[in-house]
């Protein structure tokens, strides 16, 4: 069933891509092929392979239980928050929280969670910023 849904999704993607390709504005100075032809070929391959996947599906993959799915979704949300907060809170603070969250969710105890969070964040800051001079996000506190 997963493969059938995936295949249909592939075909919908192909159709969307096809119309977006048709909507490309041609410049008056164009080569013989133009900017549309290659995307149209790709849309065809995308649609064809999507159709084959939908018609001849593989055995069902092993999907995690709803709880594990929520786990991944929560991690995505945390990482998005991390990306957004990085310029606001500064590298060290944001990274400490994100790393600690991941360690916690992978099963670290409270002490280890704090240690991984602080260790990762400060370790990266010292190695990459102080030693190697990579510029990281600066927060209000300057780090």
């Amino acid at each position: 069933m997963s493969d059938r849904i995936f295949g249909v999704f592939g075909m919908i993607l192909a159709v969307g891509y096809f119309f977006a390709a048709l909507a490309i504005e041609e410049s008056f100075l164009s080569d013989a092929v133009g900017p549309k032809a290659f995307p149209l070929i790709i849309a065809a391959i995308l649609a064809l392979s999507g159709a084959v996947i939908a018609l001849r599906p593989d055995p069902e993959p092993h999907w995690p239980a709803l709880g594990r799915l929520a786990e991944v979704a929560a991690a995505v949300v945390v990482l998005i928050l991390y990306a957004e907060m990085l310029p606001v809170a500064g590298f060290v603070i944001a990274t400490a929280f994100a790393a600690a969250y991941l360690a916690w969710r992978l099963g670290s105890g409270p002490l280890e969670t704090v240690a991984v969070g602080a260790g990762t964040s400060i370790g990266i800051y010292v190695t990459f910023h102080l030693t190697l001079g990579l510029s990281l996000a600066k927060g209000p506190l300057g780090f």
């Binding site: 991390y82 991941l102 360690a103 280890e112 964040s121």
Partner: peptide, 25 residues
């Protein structure tokens, strides 16, 4: 559980280091 947070954070640092943009992250 110790390794993977490090992998994730180093990935973010690398990409942020190139462009400095949240959009890329």
């Amino acid at each position: 559980r110790i390794l993977m947070p490090i992998v994730a954070m180093v990935s973010f640092v690398g990409i942020y280091g190139i462009s400095g943009s949240t959009f890329d992250l």
